[in-house]
Design a protein around this nucleic acid. Structure first.
Lengths: 122, 122
DNA sequence: CGATCTGGTCACTGTTCGAGACCATCGACA
DNA sequence: TGTCGATGGTCTCGAACAGTGACCAGATCG
């Protein structure tokens, strides 16, 4: 799409990247997916690992990821209740291209920080 | 990082991916970068191409992308004023890994839509 | 003498987000 | 018997944030 975009075209809502990125581009979705990458985890385990996510947002994020087919939710009828989350094949396949982005982020963080610093003093 | 994350570790703020994605993961940044991919564009041209971005958000987004070194801003002292935006080398290099993600989005949009439909009827 | 075009900014409003209280249920403990 | 803690959430409240539309300056066109 990036290459196909000519001057004058509009980037309307039919654009799939837009739909997908609106979902996973929020503050928490990607973090949750990354947390689930190594395997099955429970709600409070994810909460602890991310650290500064509120229960509300974690709950909402997980529900949306489940609806979009990225994660699967399994409830065990025990007391206290146990709920397990795991990535679906779709979720795993999504992490593939994400790794490229993550590598870029690690490699270029310095450049961004430098630009930011330059902008601050300018 | 995804592979390095073991159970029990926390995903704190030092994580570079987190910093980077908080910036480009918002509603508009990526769209602006994509719009600028083919070459230099003016403010209102970007506005028109994206279609449903408000001037305020576009202004804010461009300023942040500029601060982070993704785009360069050039003001021509004319009347009416002309302001041009272009990707920096950093901006272009960022689009590299993004293309992988975009391809994934295009390839898997159907699966997501299907999952979403299944969730809605369930 | 207006209208218009550009790149913004400002005030107002509606949506969203985080913090923290609250809930139901069971076992452990005193 | 009483109550305390753990789990996976939901509810409410105030704060922060995003979108809408008005406004601005300065020159040129009719």
């Amino acid at each position: 799409m990036l290459d196909d975009l000519k001057s004058g075209e509009t980037l309307d809502q039919a654009c799939p990247i837009r739909d997908v990125l609106d979902r996973i581009g929020d503050q928490w979705s990607l973090l949750v997916l990354a947390t689930l990458a190594p395997g099955v985890k429970r709600f409070s385990q994810i909460e602890r690992e991310i650290g500064d996510v509120s229960k509300q947002m974690l709950s909402k994020t997980l529900r949306r990821l489940e609806q979009d087919g990225f994660v699967a939710r399994e409830v065990h009828a025990e007391v206290p209740p146990r709920v397990e989350y795991r990535l679906t094949p779709l979720g795993h396949s999504f992490l593939e291209p994400m790794r490229g982005l993550i590598r870029w982020a690690e490699a270029n963080q310095g450049a961004i920080l430098a630009a930011r610093g330059r902008a601050a003093t300018a």
